[in-house]
């Protein structure tokens, strides 16, 4: 990672470079919505098989950042990106890279649970694999069970896999969406405020799940809830006005923030 160390804010990156490989690396990442400059040069390394939390007040660009990591940002008409994003050393914005393939490697879970309304539980989980061409019944069964187990939902739904996905409770729907994302075996899972529409109990389950999943894959979670970031993450980045203010191990960032703005935010002086 020598290249990372040359850029500004060396000290904010240094801690993350200890003890883990890098899964996602962004370098001078800018993003626009038409004239609005939403991200202003984000450079950071997401450690592999850890939970990285992105916090910051509304409109600070944290969701936009997340959506740049699997090329969902460009789906918005008039949206633009510059800079590089590397996922396991492959530049996902290089010419000739198919965003469809990027999104199979970098999955996403959204703020509101969004199961496919016409599909049952089984079909929801199988959708990604099936629409990628898998027809073998046994392998599909296998993927569905494995993904539902990984999302800690199997025991609750194994007897009603043919019921509509929308018949589940909000928290179950969100775990269904996580299972659906896991079914295509992504290397990285992006979670965009995955618990903000859920009650505290369901929130807790999602957080436990994120911790568990990080044993296998890399998790990046955007949250406006600082307690959640503190509970769930190994590394935290604080965004403000489209810039990365501070980035480092969660413990250090919350107990000894190096930047005044971070301190103000986490002590609740604004945002």
């Amino acid at each position: 990672m020598p290249k990372q160390l040359e850029v500004r804010d060396v000290e904010t990156h240094a801690p993350t470079l200890v003890g883990a490989n890098t899964a996602v690396q962004t370098d001078d990442l800018h993003a626009w919505f038409d004239q609005l400059h939403a991200l202003r040069g984000i450079t950071l390394n997401v450690p592999e098989r850890q939970v990285t939390a992105i916090i910051g007040p509304s409109g600070c660009g944290k969701s936009t950042f997340l959506r740049c990591l699997n090329r969902m940002h460009e789906l918005v008409p008039s949206a633009r990106v510059s800079g590089t994003v590397r996922v396991h050393d492959q530049d996902i914005y290089a010419p000739g890279i198919d965003p469809v393939l990027v999104r199979r490697r970098v999955g996403m879970v959204f703020q509101k649970p969004n199961p496919f309304p016409t599909m049952n539980i089984y079909d929801n989980v199988a959708a990604g694999v099936r629409l990628a061409g898998e027809r073998d019944r046994r392998r599909l069964d296998d993927v569905v069970e494995r993904s539902l187990r990984a999302a800690a939902l199997w025991e609750e739904v194994k007897d009603r896999l043919r019921k509509p996905g929308t018949s589940l409770s909000g928290g179950q729907q969100q775990r269904l969406c996580i299972a659906r994302a896991l079914a295509v075996s992504p290397e990285v899972l992006l979670m965009d405020e995955p618990a903000s529409a859920l009650d505290p109990a369901a929130t807790l389950r999602i957080e436990e799940l994120a911790r568990d999943l990080a044993k296998e894959i890399t998790i990046v979670i955007v949250t406006h809830n600082m307690q959640q970031a503190a509970r769930v993450s190994d590394v935290t980045g604080f965004f403000l006005g489209g810039q990365l203010v501070e980035f480092g191990p969660t413990n250090g960032l919350f107990t000894r923030p190096t930047d005044k703005r971070t301190e103000d935010y986490i002590t609740g002086r604004f945002g």
Partner: peptide, 27 residues
């Protein structure tokens, strides 16, 4: 059809045409 349904499909790495044909239209 809610935009979130389209995004869910695209984020799974389902190509645009399949998203429209197999997810959006059935909805």
């Amino acid at each position: 059809v809610p935009q979130s349904v389209r995004e869910a499909a695209l984020a799974l790495g389902i190509p645009q045409w399949k998203t429209t044909l197999r997810v959006v239209l059935p909805t």
